[in-house]
């Protein structure tokens, strides 16, 4: 995984270090994975379930995972595929609409009760959730999980140019939805991306 705040730097090396054992890997990536999924899934209850599903998969395939260049990318890919499969099935059964998928619907409040990070950044998460699926994925992976455009491209299976397009559009849509920043944040982060 990536050094937070400066996506992409040393990401490969850090990912290799986290492969010392499954427990180290789990402790390193589970929080990011669960919270990233909270920002993507319209049903917050799916996030821990899907994260566990992906982690069980990593544990089952641990020997194979050790041979991967980016095992962290693999686990994000598995989790996202699982989420999108579940949502595609839900859409097929007509109980999930695009509008519902983008709504907070109050279930974020439930997660916020147990997760302080969600509580603190609830408005941001709700705004990411309101984006269209590909935009939310790209924005979430790049800005929240801290992956580079190339990593996002590998996770989503789309080329880097399309990732940049989704990122630009996603960010524009996010700006329309997101509330103003908390004081001091902009200077703290020194953001020039």
């Amino acid at each position: 995984m990536i050094k937070r705040g400066s996506p992409g730097q040393d990401s490969g090396r850090e990912a290799r270090l986290s492969l010392a054992s499954f427990d180290v890997f789990y402790r390193r990536y589970l929080p990011v994975l669960v919270r990233f999924l909270v920002s993507q899934a319209h049903e917050s209850a799916w996030a821990p379930e899907i994260a566990e599903y992906a982690m069980v998969a990593a544990c089952d395939k641990w020997d194979d995972l050790l041979t991967f260049d980016r095992p962290d990318c693999w686990i994000f890919m598995i989790a996202l595929r699982r989420l999108r499969q579940l949502e595609a099935r839900a859409r097929e059964r007509c109980w999930l609409t695009e509008a519902a998928a983008g709504s907070d619907g109050g279930d974020l409040r439930m997660v916020a009760l147990t997760d302080s990070w969600v509580r603190e950044h609830r408005a941001v998460i709700a705004a990411v959730r309101a984006l269209r699926r590909r935009h939310a994925e790209v924005v979430g992976l790049h800005y929240l999980a801290g992956y580079t455009v190339d990593d996002v491209s590998a996770i989503l299976g789309i080329n880097a140019a399309k990732v940049r397009t989704h990122l630009r559009r996603g960010l524009a849509a996010f700006r329309d939805r997101a509330p103003g920043p908390p004081a001091g944040i902009e200077t703290e982060c020194g953001l020039s991306r």
Binding site: R4, V124, G180, P181, I185
Partner: peptide, 18 residues
Amino acid sequence: MTGEAELLAAGATIGDMP
């Protein structure tokens, strides 16, 4: 840059879990 700042602020602490 407003949107980016909020996203990155959230991303900066996403891995901090008890």
